[in-house]
Amino acid sequence: MKKLVITSENIKFLKKINELADQDITLCEQCGTCSGSCPMVADMDITPSQIMRMVQLGDLDVLNSKAIWVCASCYSCTVRCPRNLDVSKVAEALRQVYLRKALDYVEIKKIPKYELVSLPQIAIVSACRKFTG
């Protein structure tokens, strides 16, 4: 297990995600309801509740997780959180920290053209919103 020494950088990161998500993530009590509700959890490297825990600790490694990109913003976690935390917003905040550096998670120009033309607008527009910086 990784040893984490909490520094001012970690506290700053927690504060930033709290602000972006407009949530007090320290309220999370790690009950795991979000992870149990997530339809995508089987494809995640860390579970939604682990994401919450890492953010509480200000662990920047959470930004390297696949999980934040596998989230489909379905709000299943959000409607069930006993602490009324909006977990979807936390995942979005983490994606935004990455995307706001003008980085793309999915490069739409590199998706094969035959795939692009088979997709409805609604899919492309939302993927652009969620995956491009």
Binding site: P39, A72, S76, I108
Partner: peptide, 19 residues
Amino acid sequence: KVCCGSYQTVNNKEKVAEL
């Protein structure tokens, strides 16, 4: 009421097909 995978269909169609 279980999510169909939504826009993940753009970059992860296999997962969406499983859902």
